[in-house]
C-alpha cells in the first residue's frame, strides 16, 4: 500500500470550496484527482459535489467537469466515453463519474445498471454520505437502519441496499469499497481502477458532519469508527478475486475493534435509537462482516 508520505499532491483541488466545514469530500477529491494526475473528466449529477464545485463562473477544481441531470450520471458518462472514442480522444483522459448515494442507489441505478451491463469504459465513484444531503438530509436507499432523516423522523426501519453487491452482480471487472478518510487505500484503488478498462465501480464512504450530526473536527474519527465497527468494510474484487484491504484486512485478523453502539454514540442522527435497533444492526453487521471475512479467506 502507498504510504501517506508518498501520496502525490497535484494541486487540482483549488483552495476554498462551498462544502460544509469538515466535509471529507475535499480529501477524497484531492486523492482522486492526484491518482489520475488530473487527466480526467468528472461527470457529476446534482449533489453536494455540485455545490462543492462552486457557482458559475468560478470552479473549485482545476479539472474538466461536466454537470449532468440527477438520474443520468452513468448514461452521460457512457456518452462522454463514446464521444471521446468517436473523436479519437479516448487516450487523453479517464472518464470519472462521481455521484452521491441517492444519485447512485436510487434515481441513478437504472442508468448505472445499464452501463455496467454494457461494461462501459469509465470509473464510477459513489460517495456515500448515507442520505440526500444536498436537499436537506432525506432518507436514501443507502441510509442505515436506525438513522433519523427528514423523511424518517423516528429512525429508518430498513437496512441499506448493498450497491456494491448489485454492481458486482453485473460481472464487471473491478469493484471496490473505500472510505474518504483512508486516503492511501483510496489512492491505490483509483490507481488500480485506472489501470483497467470497462466499468469500474468504487463505493466510497463519506462521513458527513452536517447530516450525521457530529462536530466537523470528527469526520476522520467517524470514518475510522465505521471501518473499525465493520459497518464499512474496505475491499476490492478484481477479476473475481476478493480481498479485504488496508485497515479491514488487519481487522480480519484481529477482529472488529468497535461496536455498532460505539459508532452510533455521538451522532445525532442516531439520538434515541432503541437498544433493540442497535442489537438488530449489530447482528446485521456481524453477519455481513463474517461473510466478507469468509470471502477474503477464500479469495473469491
Amino acid at each position: 500500500m502507498t504510504r501517506i508520505t508518498d501520496l502525490p499532491d497535484t494541486g487540482h483541488v483549488l483552495p476554498g470550496n462551498r462544502a460544509c466545514a469538515g466535509c471529507p469530500l475535499g480529501i477524497a477529491l484531492r486523492r482522486i484527482t492526484a491518482a489520475l494526475d488530473g487527466r480526467m473528466v468528472l461527470v457529476n449529477p446534482a449533489s453536494c459535489l455540485t455545490v462543492l464545485g462552486g457557482m458559475y463562473p468560478i470552479s473549485s477544481l482545476a479539472i474538466p467537469w461536466v454537470n449532468c441531470a440527477f438520474p443520468s450520471t452513468a448514461a452521460t458518462a457512457s456518452g462522454i466515453a463514446a464521444g471521446l472514442r468517436a473523436t479519437g480522444r479516448a487516450d487523453e483522459m479517464t472518464v470519472v463519474a462521481m455521484a452521491g448515494d441517492g444519485g447512485t442507489a436510487d434515481i441513478g441505478i437504472q442508468a448505472l445498471s445499464g452501463a455496467a451491463e454494457r461494461n462501459e469504459d469509465f470509473i464510477y465513484i459513489c460517495y456515500d454520505n448515507e442520505a440526500y444531503m444536498n436537499t436537506g438530509t432525506q432518507r436514501s436507499g443507502s441510509t442505515p437502519h436506525g438513522a433519523r432523516t427528514t423523511t424518517t423522523w423516528s429512525g429508518k426501519r430498513e437496512n441499506p441496499k448493498d450497491v456494491l453487491a448489485i454492481v458486482e452482480a453485473h460481472d464487471v471487472g473491478y469493484v471496490a469499497s473505500a472510505s474518504a478518510v483512508f486516503p492511501e487505500d483510496l489512492h491505490d484503488k483509483i490507481v488500480a481502477a485506472n489501470g483497467r478498462a470497462g466499468l469500474r465501480y468504487v463505493h466510497m464512504n463519506l462521513p458527513c458532519p452536517s447530516g450525521w450530526g457530529f462536530d466537523p473536527k470528527d469526520s476522520v474519527r467517524y470514518g475510522r469508527l465505521a471501518v473499525d465497527a465493520g459497518l464499512v468494510a474496505l475491499y476490492e474484487v478484481a477479476d473475481g478475486v476478493f480481498r479485504l484491504t488496508g485497515r479491514s484486512a488487519a481487522l480480519a485478523k484481529s477482529g472488529l475493534k468497535a461496536s455498532v453502539a460505539e459508532y452510533m454514540a455521538g451522532q445525532s442522527r442516531f439520538r434515541g435509537v432503541s437498544e433493540e435497533t442497535i442489537a438488530e444492526v449489530q447482528e446485521w453487521v456481524d453477519d455481513r462482516w463474517s461473510g466478507l471475512v469468509a470471502r477474503h479467506e477464500a479469495g473469491v
Binding site: 473528466v41 461527470v43 461536466v66 449532468c68 441531470a69 438520474p71 443520468s72 452513468a74 448514461a75 452521460t76 458518462a77 457512457s78 456518452g79 462522454i80 466515453a81 463514446a82 464521444g83 471521446l84 472514442r85 468517436a86 473523436t87 480522444r89 437504472q110 442508468a111 445498471s113 445499464g114 451491463e117 454494457r118
Partner: peptide, 27 residues
C-alpha cells in the same frame, strides 16, 4: 463507422447524446 450505445431507456439515450455532444461528437 459510429458508436452505437444500446441504452436501457430513453432518458439514457438522450443522456448519452448529451455526453457525446459535449465532447464534440455528432450525436
Amino acid at each position: 463507422p459510429a458508436e452505437f450505445v444500446a441504452v436501457e431507456s430513453e432518458h439514457s439515450a438522450l443522456s448519452v447524446c448529451i455526453g457525446a455532444s459535449t465532447v464534440g461528437a455528432r450525436a
